[in-house]
Design a protein around this nucleic acid. Structure first.
Lengths: 334, 334
DNA sequence: CTGTTAGCGCCTTCAC
DNA sequence: GTGAAGGCGCTAACAG
């Protein structure tokens, strides 16, 4: 039904090839021929079929965003949205489309990510919000599909990554609490399957050591990034360590749980207990007391990931590992 | 490079046609032929090219999500994410892909939505977060592109819509405040370009009349859905009407601004001033005092929109207008 | 400079 | 039940 290149060729009285060349900016076309073709194409409202082009060029100019747990309610959403924006905006600038690929749906649990990507002939993928132990994701990465992973340090021939410098971020948090006079500083971490958890823990321990504080295992609690988990972590740490005056949470949502617990047991924040989160989700400005936290550059993570992937695709650049510096945002909870 | 249907045919010792039929579940294929083809296809890890199929079938099984203002910071995000999830999940179940189409980027400001949709040969579009007066969007809707619009009541041959029953929602809010004993109830609305604003205003005025309250124009303020705008609206209304004891805001974010202003001028919520929002964004549970609000079924709006569009596409169903009932969530601010 | 000839990978009549 | 053509809309050699 739509007007094809053939229609334009006929109307302009030239061959299909010439139309193709004229419209794609090739130099070897007569100036007036080109003008005529352009005029006719415009008059006919010709829209070249990206599908047909993809078939012959063997490139779809489309990249997939692989996300797991893209469900109604999930603790990682706050973070992922920001990244999504960055990815989308930059990809659009670079002339790439973005299709969402999630694994939450019944249908997609049957077909692997890899099948999906291959069938759609995606040029590359950006992976986000996926646990390191996800069986399907490994398949994609092993397949040599050009990819960039958010928040997991995986580097190979065709796979780069971008993440926040979590070690540094955790150090910022601990140093801040130390500077505020705290000496018994707890740490509530996220689940072990997240690479960021390892790094944040590492940063916590290193910073504690730097500050000359002994690291007691009882000062740490492994949770799951949820608010409920944060409450539990806060409760446990305070019970085990009555002298604890500050806790660093590996996510804002967990810190919210911490604030809630403190309130429940009548502890004043920040005077009785100081709290630092991680992420700087929007919520953290709004709660009372507002939450001091480590800000991650979400949007920038997205643009960097998009740039890296397209660089690999269009310019054959090598994938790399990029660390973005986080920042401490001091608010009322410390 | 990837294995094609021809490779499978050769390896199975049958024709391309037979492979196609066997793999696509046609009946007129010998039982053992089918088994053999399936086995060979699996062994070779054959992945049919969605691109090639699209070209010949003239259908991409891809729908576009048109969003404007998909920027780093925007007041509508909270709402749009929920809808996005619903759309994506349902579309995946139905075998459709979702590509994001936004207009924020430099490149896309040059090409209209319509051009984009046509070139990608999208099967349909879902439109969300777009002002009614957006010049480009009209182009898409006029073009007869199968579409479903979120939050704007546009109904035509190829265009349906889904939105919350905003009139009813606003009434819920006003009735609730009335039931709490308030008689001077203000209303801070969003910008006029949003269809929902008209409806919420309508619901406010009708409910006021139902309650036997005279509607003073000074009780209303037209703002812009932002927190800052909400602050301003709250301030203005209270200055003009010192006896005002309750305000209904057309969005939670504006209500946040209201809460902030109240706090700034030393008004206690809810005793001095009661506040009701609209949307039930996540924030509203976390602020202190937590915000009473009109809950919108965001995820469901997405699934309904996806169902409607695919119904039009796959079953030739007629587009329709669907209203979803909101709910009052009573919290501490009233 | 421009047209002709081949496909890209797949589905679909139409014969056998 | 199966295969042989033809073509979806476009680009890419290769000739002239």
């Amino acid at each position: 039904m739509p007007v094809t290149i053939r229609d334009v060729a006929r109307a302009a009285g030239v061959s299909i090839t010439t139309v193709s060349r004229a419209l794609n900016g090739y130099e070897d076309v007569g100036a007036d021929t080109r003008r005529k073709v352009e005029r006719v194409a415009a008059e006919l409202k010709y829209r070249p079929s990206a599908i047909a082009r993809s078939l012959v060029m063997n490139r779809t100019k489309t990249i997939g965003l692989l996300v797991s747990e893209l469900t109604k309610e999930h603790s990682g959403h706050h973070f992922m949205f920001g990244v999504l924006y960055g990815i989308h905006d930059r990809l659009a600038e670079l002339g790439y489309d973005l299709v969402l690929v999630s694994t939450t749906t019944a249908r997609q649990r049957l077909v692997s990510y890899l099948t999906f990507c291959t069938e759609r002939r995606l040029d590359g993928v950006i992976v986000m919000g996926i646990r390191m132990d996800d069986p399907y994701i490994q398949e994609v990465l092993d397949s040599g599909f050009p990819s960039v992973v958010i928040d997991v340090p995986l580097l190979s021939e065709r796979c780069g990554y971008v993440m926040t410098d979590n070690v540094f971020g955790a150090k910022l948090a601990v140093r801040h609490l130390f500077a505020k006079g705290h000496r018994v500083i707890g740490f509530v971490n996220g689940h072990v399957q997240a690479a960021v958890s390892r790094e944040r823990r590492c940063g916590y321990e290193e910073a504690m050591a730097e500050c000359g504080l002994v690291g007691d295992p009882d000062w740490q609690f492994v949770s799951d990034f949820t608010e409920r988990g944060g409450m539990e972590g806060c409760k446990t740490l305070l019970e085990k360590n009555p002298d604890m005056t500050a806790i660093f949470f590996a996510s804002d949502l967990m810190a919210m749980g911490g604030l809630r617990h403190a309130q429940a047991v009548g502890l004043k924040v920040p005077s009785d207990l100081s709290v630092v989160g991680f992420d700087d989700i929007e919520l953290s400005q709004y709660v009372t007391p507002s939450l001091s936290t480590i800000h991650q550059k979400r949007y920038e993570m997205g643009t960097v990931a998009a740039d890296m992937l397209v660089g690999m695709l269009d310019q054959g650049k090598a994938p790399e590992g990029r660390l973005l510096s986080p920042q401490l945002f001091e608010r009322q909870s410390t």
